[in-house]
Amino acid sequence: MSGLRVDQLSFAYGRKQALREVSFHIPQGSFCALLGPNGAGKSTLFALLTRLFTSRDGTIEIAGHDLSQAPRKALKQMGVVFQQPTLDLDLTVHRNLTYFAALHGFSGRDANTRIEAALDRLNMRERQKETVRDLNGGHRRRLEIARSLIHTPSVLLLDEPTVGLDAATRKSITDHIHALSQSEGLTVLWATHLTDEIQDTDQLLILHQGRLLEDGTAQALRGTQPLADHFLSLTEESTVA
């Protein structure tokens, strides 16, 4: 178990370089925020981490498994919440979760136990018979997070999971994932462009124009500045340069 390790990862769409030699390590059980403006390369990084496509340059290790050498072992240890909604709106909460459990090979009683545990974790149990279409945006997100935990992964990737949610819901989801990371030893990579979702003790990666500009705890990186100002000055500087 060694969390998430990315080493010298580069990727280009044709001639357009999207990631340049990105390296970082998130220790097991840490919450790490990936901060970057739109177009920084966050989505590309997520596509590579979830093996939507692969790169020949660099390596990705999920809980000690190399994603290109042992993809199935690595995917088993990984939970993902995508930026775009991936729920079947016309199916019930429970059916959505059963489908996902089956994708990981779980069925019958085993699947049900896992689904109930996942729903309990996100306080969603009473909604399991509701159709997803009837849930509000916040509950849909919580459901996707619950779903990503069904196969008890050790690494959880979330790609801007709070997009389109109101402030209170954003805060409750952000707090919840922080708590989960601590209580269950879950390694979390949380991509965002909103600085208020990041706590001072979090590990922080700042990605801009495909390069990793900074890697450290949020507090150490921002110093005495508010994080938003620090982030702005950093991304503006390198845009000008």
Binding site: T50, R51, P71, R72, K73, K76, P85, T86, D88, L103
Partner: peptide, 21 residues
């Protein structure tokens, strides 16, 4: 279409071999 692409992405995160999925 992107809506379905999301479900495809979800499908492809399954640890089973991609050809089988």
């Amino acid at each position: 279409y992107d809506r379905e692409m999301g479900s495809m992405r979800l499908l492809l995160t399954s640890p089973l071999p991609r050809w089988w999925l």
